[in-house]
Nucleic acid binder design. Structure first.
Length: 441
RNA sequence: GCGGCGUUGGUGAAGUGGUUAACACGCUGGUUUGUGGCACCAGUAUGCAUGAGUUCGAUCCUCAUACGCCGCCCCA
């Protein structure tokens, strides 16, 4: 038996329906914010990720899927979405567009060569947004509130945004030095990992799981105290706008991003009660320049879809996902079967969700099958009745059944089945939050 | 990349170095030859992740491999 590769999953059944629902919500919200859908290749030149992310990090050295194609080209399966979008921005010279910022969103699979655990796959799905061409804190705030609102629209109201600022590179360098100065006397007391971090990535020391509850950690310097005037202003503005947008957030000085191209705002979305990471993002004003484009201020977000689906399944929050059908057509002999084929098609083309029997099973098992699909109505075909132009329609809830004319079938269903294939309803959300009068605070 | 634990039908699972691998759900058929969900009866793993080894004999012990889960590193 052939089995799926390590760290991959099959999404089927109910889970697949929830998955589709999540994507519909994402599409719908993105549309309202006027973000354009973008598709970039799943594999790119290895150099894109090596240069974009930074050649020395673990990420590149051991966690990407690298391969050579038959033309001896070095390719890499994308480990994240941003680099491809930025490459496209530069390659297609979108920076020449007078209408900056460019606002795009994506949704697709990413590949990371990691040891799989729960919520940690080798093939994972992410959606994300990128805004290229605005340095205004308003842009940061919009991206944060957009990501927050998608989760809210999905029914996750346990979400809180953790936000921090890394400042510009000056602020960050002075902070890094301050951290090293502060921890130097304690170096012998730190765990082995932190001793390594001290040289490689001092910012990571402050969120170490082993050391962080040691007494001297409380007084370690905080990055927010090292922001220069411009950086501080930017951060304050972002927070001010977030208040206006009614985003639930906390300032969290322990959020750091490993990569050098991040600056100013960084943020993560987490569930408040269980502290599960839903996604994260931030401002990356250096990346376009690193990838041979003109210096372009950008901000983005990426969130995991696997995790969202898992949460919704666990919390049974998929009331919008349909799990029933309108009618099941039952038959026994060949003449009836022909009617079943004909009527199934007719009903389906009239907009109803219809199932029937394909293995010539007994009537008894057809009833079971109809229940399995939660069929609202059962249409029982009987040769004698068909000769008189009649079919039996049984309401599977009330168990009432009646014989109706075949010609009347469509009208019968039009009358009895309410159109509850509801679209994602942004309007009701907006009305319940109609507090525009409060915006002057 | 490092460490720990796990893997038994379609599913949840019990179990033992020695004949027929429990129990439950599901599924199939029947009681009931065209109106179901209930009930009762019957059927449903020659096999216990894969490969090798130890043994008279292995699902059980040993080793390796694959996959899963948990932790570390890392987290784009």
């Amino acid at each position: 038996m052939i089995i799926k590769p390590k760290g991959t999953v099959d999404i089927t059944g109910k889970e697949a329906k929830v998955w589709k629902y999540v994507e519909e919500v994402i599409d719908s919200v993105m549309e309202k914010y006027n973000y354009n859908y973008i598709r970039t290749p799943i594999f790119e030149s290895s150099e894109l990720f090596h240069r974009g992310i930074g050649d020395s990090t673990d990420i590149v050295t051991k966690e990407t899927y690298d391969f050579k194609d038959r033309g001896d080209r070095n390719l890499t399966l994308r480990p994240e979405g941003t680099a491809g979008v930025v490459r496209s921005f530069v390659e297609n010279k979108m920076y020449g567009n007078a209408n900056l910022p460019i606002k795009v969103y994506y949704n697709g699979t990413m590949y990371r060569y990691e040891r799989p655990q729960k919520g940690r796959l080798r093939e994972l799905s992410q959606y994300g947004v990128e805004c290229l061409g605005s340095s205004d804190p308003m842009m940061d705030a919009e991206v944060i509130s957009l990501s927050f609102n998608i989760n809210k629209m999905l029914g996750l109201d346990d979400v809180v945004v953790h936000i921090n600022s890394l400042g510009d590179s000056d602020s960050r360098n002075s902070y890094r030095e301050a951290l090293k100065t502060y921890f130097k006397p304690y170096l012998d007391d730190l765990c082995d990992d932190c001793k390594e971090r001290f040289n490689k990535n001092p910012l990571r020391i402050i969120d170490c799981k082993i050391d962080s509850n040691k007494s001297y950690f409380k007084d370690a310097p905080k990055i927010l105290d090292f922001l220069n005037v411009e950086s501080k202003e930017h951060f304050d503005k972002v927070c001010e706008y977030l208040d206006l947008l009614e985003v639930k957030y906390v300032v969290d000085p322990y959020i750091v991003r490993g990569l050098d191209y991040y600056n100013h705002t960084v943020f993560e979305l987490k569930t408040e009660s269980t502290n599960l990471a839903l996604g994260g993002g931030g401002r990356y004003d250096k990346l376009v320049g690193n990838l041979d484009g003109p210096e372009t201020p950008c901000v983005g977000y990426a969130g995991g879809i696997d995790r969202l689906v898992e949460l919704l399944m666990n919390e049974k929050k998929f009331s919008n996902v349909r799990d029933d059908i309108d009618a099941f057509l039952m038959y026994v002999n060949e003449d009836e079967k022909k009617y079943a084929i004909y009527l199934a098609n007719l009903l389906r083309m009239s907009g109803f969700v219809v199932e029937t029997e394909y293995n010539n099973k007994s009537l008894k098992s057809q009833f079971k099958r109809a229940d399995y699909f939660n069929s609202k109505y059962l249409i029982i075909l009987n040769s004698n009745d068909l000769n008189d132009g009649l079919v039996t329609v049984k309401n599977n809830k009330t168990k009432e059944e009646e014989k109706i004319m075949i010609e009347y079938l469509i009208y019968y269903f039009d009358e009895h089945i309410s159109d509850d294939n509801q679209d994602v309803d942004l309007e009701s959300y907006c009305h319940s939050h109609d507090k525009r009068g409060d915006c002057n605070e």
